[in-house]
Structures are given as C-alpha cells and as structure tokens.
Design a protein around this nucleic acid. Sequence first.
RNA 1: GCCGAAGUGGCGGAACUGGCAGACGCGCGCGACUCAAAAUCGCGAGUCCUUUGGACGUGUGGGUUCGAUUCCCACCUUCGGCACCA
Length: 823
Amino acid sequence: MSDDNRYYPTEIEPRWQAKWEADGLYHADVDESRPKHYALTMLPYPSGDLHMGHWFAMTPSDARARFKRMQGYNVLFPMGFDAFGLPAENAAIKRNIHPKQWTYKNIERMRGQLKSMGASFDWRREAISADEEYYKWTQWFFLQLYKNGLAYRKLAAVDFCPTDNTTLAREQVVGENRVCERCGTPVIKKELEQWFFKITDYADELLNFVGIDWPERVQTLQTNWIGRSEGARVFFPTEAGENIEVFTTRPDTLWGATFMVLAPEHPLVEKLTAPEQQAAVAAYKEAAGRQTDIEREATDKEKTGVFTGGYAINPVNQARIPVWIADYVLLSYGTGAIMAVPAHDARDFEFARKHGLDIRVVIRPAGETWEGADLEAAWSHEGVMVNSGPFDGTPATEDKGRANPAIKAVTDWLEKQQFGAAAVNYRLRDWLISRQRYWGAPIPMIHCKTCGIQPVPQDQLPIVLPDDIEWLPTGESPLKLHPTWKNVPCPNCNEPAERDTDTMDTFMCSSWYHLRYLSPDFAGGPFDDREYNYWMPVDTYTGGIEHATMHLIYTRFFHKALRDMGIVEGAEPMLQLRNQGSVLGADSAKMSKSKGNVVAPDELVAEYGADAMRAYLMFFTRWNVGGPWNSQGIEGPNRWLRRVWTLFTEPGGPGNTVQMAMLKDLRRAVHQTLKRVTHDYENFEFNTIISSLMELTNELYRFREQGAYGTTQWREAQEVFLQMMAPVTPHIAEELWARLGKPYSIHTSKWPAVDEAAAKADEIELVVQVNGKLRDKIVVPAGTSEADMQAAALASETVQKFLEGKTPKKVIVAGGKLVNIVL
RNA sequence: GCCGAAGUGGCGGAACUGGCAGACGCGCGCGACUCAAAAUCGCGAGUCCUUUGGACGUGUGGGUUCGAUUCCCACCUUCGGCACCA
C-alpha cells in the first residue's frame, strides 16, 4: 500500500484481483440449500485482443451477476473460448503460424485481459471448444443426432464462399448481395454432398416463446427467419401422367389458376417438355444455371420463362392449363412448382401480361364486375369468390390461413375431394454443418466403399485433429490432403475406408458450451448430471443481437433435440435473454483497424483503472443500444471515483451542531437511491445506476459539510453506498470497505434492504399549474389532503396574479403532487 | 415492397402507470487556489425577448386530454431484419 492516502487504482486493483483469485471468492459449487443463479455471457472468439465490445458486453453482465450474488444467490458466472474457427486458419496462411498455436496464444493473452476487468468469473469452469476433451463431446453429440435421424447427408446446391473456401449455412449468408457473413465475399452455389441437421423438424416449436423472457426483437427476427406460412398442397395431374405438387397460401384462388410454373431445375421438366419445345427449354435452363443467385433473385428483374409445351389439368374445374418454366420460381422453396393465379398474385400477373396468358378473376369486391382484361394489377385484397363453382359468394378476407373463411372452406373441401391437403411451409432450411476447413471438430464419420457411411464407434472418440497439416486454400478440406489421417479401417467390415475430411461449423461447438461449463473436466459424458440438475437452465443470458438467427436459434434447436433424446430436460436452455448494443468508433462506424477508429481498452485501463472503465462503459449509453465511443467521457466516472475516495478517506465538516432533520434527510437520500439502484440492476438499466450514485455522492458531500460525518447515519450511508457501487466498481468498493473495517468481502455481503419508512418524504413540493402551465411550487407536508392542496394552490400569490380575479372553471389535483387550475 | 426499432441542448443521455422536460455526465464559459499551469473546488448556461418576468421548445403536421417526450392518425428521417418465399 502506498504511504499517501490518494486513490491509486493501478495499485489497488491487481492486489484485490490476486486475493479474490487466491481465496476462490467467485467459485460456485452445487449447494442445494441455496437458490442458484446461472448468469451467462456469450463466450469470446480468441481473436487476439479483448476489445471494447467485449468489455461493453461483459462488464454489465458481471455487475448483474455480482448483484445477484449479493442478493443471496449462489451464482455461476463462467467464461471460456469459442476457439475453433476460420480466422485462426487464415492467420496460419498469412503468418505461417499453426492455428493451434495462434489460438492458444491468443487465449493466454485474452485470459489475462479478462482478469484485468476484475470480473467475477469462476475460472475453474473454463471451457475451450478446441480442447480434445471438449470436442470429443461435440463429436459425441453429432453421433447422437445421427443416431436419432437428425443428422443426414445430402447432395444439394449449397452456398460456398470462394474466399474462405468452404460451404456455409444459410444463416451465414447475409445481405442483399448474399455475401459471406465472415469475409463479405459474394457466395456461389456448388453441388456438394454435405451434412445437415434437421432443424426444420423443430420449426414449429422454435416459434413458441412461451415461458422464456426474450426480447420481442429477437422473437420477431427468429419468427421471420423461420417464415411459417399456412396453406395447402394441391396435386395437378398432367397430360404426361405425373402429378405436379404445388404449395399455395391461397387455395381459395384455385379456380383462377390459368397456368403453372416450374423452377427450371424441377425434376419433372424433362418429362413435361414437348419435343418441339425441347430446344427452347434446354436453352433457358442453361441460361438460368449460369446466373448467379443475386441476378436470379433480384426482385426488379423482368420475368422471363418458356413454355414447356406440356399441359396440366386444374383439378377443381378440369381446365387444361399450360406448364411453363421460369426462374422466378425457386426449387429451394415449397415444392419448386407453383400454380399461377395472375389475377391475384403480382408476380403471376406480370408474367401473364408479358407472355399473353389468361387472367381469370375469382375474387372481387361485391358489386364490381371487372374481369381479368380490366385489371391494372393483381387484386390481393378482400372480396367475394366468383367464377369458383360451388364457392361463389364465399367472402374472402385479407386474413392469412384458416382465419380467412374462403381459405378455410376451400381447404376443407380439397381434403374431402382428395385434391390436396392443408399444409404448412417454412422458409427455414436445414442447418448445413460441413466445412471444408482444418480448424474445427472433425466430423466423426467414415466412408466405406462397401458399407457406405459408418459412424465412428463412440469409444474411439475423440477423432483428433492432426497437428501436421498443410494449409492450402484449395476448396478441399486440408484434412483430405493429409497423407495418412483419413485412412482407417471400416468399423463394420474392417476393409480400408476413409474418414470424413470435413469439420463441423463452429456454431455446433457453441450450441452446447453452457453445458460444458457445468463440469469442464468431466470424463463420463458431456456434463455431470448432478451439476446439470442444480444449475440449468441458464437464468440470464447476455450477448449481441447479431446472433438472433444463428447461435440463438441453433442453441434452442440443439437443446430441444437433446431433450427429445433424453439427454437434457426442459423446453428451453436459457430463460432470460438480454442483448447489448454495440460500441462504435467515434465516427459512428464499426470499430475496425482499417478505419483507424479502434480504441484499445488496455490503454484506458492502464491510465484510469478497470473500475473507471467499468463505470464508464455502464454509464455512457443505454446498454441495449450502444453507440459511438468517446474516450473523453471517461473523465466523468474517473472524477466520480476520486470524489468517492476523498469522501471516504478524509474526515470533513466543521462538526457543528448536528441537526436531527438533516440526518433524516441523509437517510432518505440513501434509501431512495437504494430503491432506484436495486430496481435498475434488476432491469438492466445500468446507466441510471451510475447517475443515481453520482447524485448521491454530490449529496453526501453536502451532508458532510453540514456535519453528518461521524454519526451512525453517516456510517450507514457509507456502507450502503459501497455496497451499491460494488457490482460496478468492485476494487475500490472492496478497498474502502476494508478501510471502514468491515469484514471481507463486500462482494459476499448481503445486499441492503430498503427502509421504506426512511425513504419516504415528509414534505413534498407541490407543483401548481394554471391552464397546464407551471406557475408556482409550494412545499406542503406529505399526506396533505387534496382539498388542502387545492386551497394552498389557490392561496398562492403568483397564482392569484394569473387568475386575475376570475373563478376557476375546474381544479384538478393529480398524483398527490400537482394542482392544475383551469380558467 | 414487407416487418421492426429509434428521432429530446454543442455531445452521451434522464424523465416510474400521461403530471415540474433536459437529472447525471462530457465539453464549454466565468471565478477561487497558483508565480504560472495541471489537478481540485465554486458558480453559470435549452432558445428567443430589454428586465423583475414572459413567450417558445422533445423530427414534422394534426387529434384526444385540464395537462402529451409519453396515447391516437398521417408524414419525414435514420438504423436493423426479410425480400420473386408462391
């Protein structure tokens, strides 16, 4: 300790951090006698340095975990590393350093930086997804999914990033230009055999958020992503013999289907094409195949297509309708074929007008008589069914699905007639998890020429990633190029076979890391049931919203799949989710080295200390919003902490006659603040916690001037104040707590209770308005009756001036603190 | 195009169920301390009007109300998501 009495955060902070660690102060063990709280913050990718975003995400999470701990919960707050992934491999290529070495060196560095935050992580729980003992279980989960029919292999046109040389999940392709989420390169389509997880089996359940407290925004993003639409499947017989199956959300417009459109790649195209159209169809298919997805899916593109020469029969009215192919129909959605109803669908309308196809009106507002030829655009609003045989006169609303009487009636009828059936379709695709990269968990499968695909027997896990590897960006998995690694005997016939040389999407690793934290060293399974039964589910999960349709949907799927296999319990893994916003550069752009707007937290910590940094991060903006960074602003919290230090370490005040009224005011200020601060911690309103504490600091200075120093009320104020600030600024709070002579540690002390009686004001400032405008303020005793308030307001001189002798029309007393006199 | 979120001083932001707009802080100005500076402390400030005092003021326009940053309608701007999804 320094000789002088000044605030030296760089001396205090490492000292307490060392003590907390030595004492295992934040170790959380199963304790059935206490209520548990599992606080989880998204684990970092070991990119090299802990940046501002990490601090911004983790500091409030830590503060809230500390708050919960002081409230008496047994709090588990673990930390780990999402250690597999592309950047490590790209670094290997660029700097000629092994991905493993690069990753573990970064982890070492970041672990130290994380410790400098003074967060209350239980480091015994650390889990690193690239550790063999970790990915052994990632592979084990893959095998469980495989055995339960939730992992399958399929040849499909998949998204491929030509820069990162790997396939991607649909979720990892973003934006209008369909670019790789990691590197921003436009993706291309490749026909490849890949592993998928059947997340679509859980589409409906994933839409259900009952029982979990997740932000509306995330629920909306996931709901839109899953994209459920209700409608019907309908079979259209063709003259070639085969049926065309379509999905439609508007079965009520079936009588208006005047042609059909297949995606160019649809398997029936060949059969349906008439000899005289073969050349045209082949040419169109080839042209469509050459286009990129971006070109093809551009909404403003003119609708092209060609007639196949084939005809289908509309099952509801036996109409003979032509079958076309066009690239505005996508093979990947629905059945890859549509019934076209140009009168009631904008796309079909455009196509019909361009190619001179029939437009038949089947829904029209009552009283109108227009027909297809009169239309300027497709009619997609409400009306009454016409030209629809038995359904003429049925009202059609704009409601979707069975809420629409027309859709309901026609769907029921279709089922009876066996023309089709009610059906639900989703935008969600199965999760593609194969990656043609080295730095990931190898897929534990073996390809045998005679036995086909064989799972690796469980007792052979983990399939260890070889260290001796060449990182050539070839588009093939580096594991394939390893001279020996892939060669294994088939587990079934023992003949030479080959390992799957792809690795798993790292989102697979992060789908279950919250389970590995429970028992990172457990060898008997992915987690120890005893720990699971006590700690799960996660009570509070915090992280960025950018994971709404990736990690956050995968981990819910994963949990539900494990539940159905009997591995875990409960419908959801995380009960409460809160998202932080992001810290931007001072120029409001994303912090990035290339823009030169990166501010390194380490430098600020070295200058101001972790506590000032933590306080500023929680103070400078609404946590769930984020915003541009301004280093200058840290001066505020920095001065505040210095003022607090001085307030607590220097005796003050002239010590003249202490007035009881003043001490009552002091207690009121303390307990009112405590009430607000408790509420704000509970509700993730961190910026106002700091404001309230700053306000109280300013008031405490005034009370000290008035001679409060040395009284029991002053002592209480000091203790409660330190406890309130402890979750935000743990080091200075611990130091001053010790200097007050309080027992170690403030972080395991009991959160103070609000003394409601003390918090209550005994005088209130009555706001007096005339015609809604503020005119006067009068101090009256708390509990003054409304009549007395009214009288006091009317008696006010200022008010009399505004009344100008008139009698008020009406006097309103509101909220026990305001009188409005209406003239 | 569809869906969602947000617009408050020079800046970040506050305002619990409609009830004192601008708390708290940054920056700024003035003063004290100092030979001087830094640090610290004190005071000041939404805009406009000459003042004691008043008018206006929460993206714009309207509405409901005794009273609107808060509720309703329309519009503008910014950001995010989805997008030929049948």
